[in-house]
Design a protein around this nucleic acid. Structure first.
Lengths: 163, 163
DNA sequence: TGGGACTTTATGGGCGTCAATGGGCAAGCG
DNA sequence: CGCTTGCCCATTGACGCCCATAAAGTCCCA
């Protein structure tokens, strides 16, 4: 598997450290990138995270703007300026900065949510709310498309993760 | 990491010294440049800083203007004429000149903001304001650029689904 | 196929190192 | 000379790295 999939909830310890889920660590290792690239999501109260792949997406966006242009300046400020490259300790843990925690409303637990080439970090409560709203909207969209949606499936059980 | 990423806020001490963030120092060292190249940003109340890489960008910009043209003259005056090369002390600190501080409204704290090949120095308050504006505008641009990607919801993979 | 042994993961805690900051001192320049 | 400026040392708190442990998962073999 080379993509971030599924979601996990882990706790921050007394030092503010939190383990990146093992399966995500595997993806990052394969992507080859020291550390974890993190920035506040533009449209959610969540953090976008990833490695090379995410950086390349951002670069692609930046490279569309001409050098020294106003747009480029704004993009690099909003994207690179607010990003952090977090170190990953030997056990696969990271420490979120105060800024990042404040942005996402994180206190002592976080949910890691796979999104293919990147993943997001959420405060678990907000993620649940976001998820049910998203599911509802998808249901509406499908309905209007005439595609019946299978009956409600509960949240999948997680290995180890209490939610 | 070979690019300026993230942002940091440091204090000026009684002598007016301020530490360049360690990670930025690393980038500068790799770029190979004695001292720090600084000039007032053309369109913000901030200072553009960097090493070789920044100088090259400026050269590239200048070279686009025909020799002896008015534009070239103006550019070189605005960019090179106002530049300073600051010394970096053994602890990785610099002292901003009065001119530079006045331009950016700096008093006793500065924010270092990574922008890839260069970084900017801001008065922290002004930076916060600029940042929220930048984020807003980027959000608008992304929106107008095309289809915003709907949040990926759907079924999270089941517990067996790793790798 | 059931159970035990090994492995992996999430989490905790100790400790040395480094970064940010403060202050002293001496050399250079007006 | 007085003040700036560059260099050295000291302090403190945060951070990275190592080792420990418990719980869960996986594997293997009788």
């Amino acid at each position: 598997m080379d993509r971030f999939v599924s979601h996990f909830t882990n706790r921050l310890d007394a030092k503010g450290r939190v383990s990146i889920p093992a399966s995500f660590r595997g993806v990052l290792a394969r992507d080859g990138f020291e550390g974890l690239y993190v920035h506040p999501s533009l449209d959610r109260e969540a953090l976008d995270c990833g490695g090379q792949a995410l950086l390349q997406e951002i670069d692609a966006l930046l490279d569309k703007q001409p050098l020294f242009s106003d747009e480029r300046d704004l993009f690099s400020t909003a994207l690179l300026g607010t990003s952090e490259v977090l170190k990953v300790d030997p056990e696969g843990r990271i420490v979120l900065t105060e800024t990042l925690k404040a942005y996402a409303g994180i206190v002592d637990q976080v949910s890691f949510v796979g999104q293919g080439s990147k993943f997001q970090i959420w405060e678990p409560g907000r993620f649940q709310a976001h998820l049910s709203e998203a599911r509802e909207r998808v249901r509406q969209m499908k309905k209007s498309l005439g595609t019946p949606i299978p009956p409600e499936v509960g949240s999948p059980a997680q290995r180890g993760a209490r939610e």
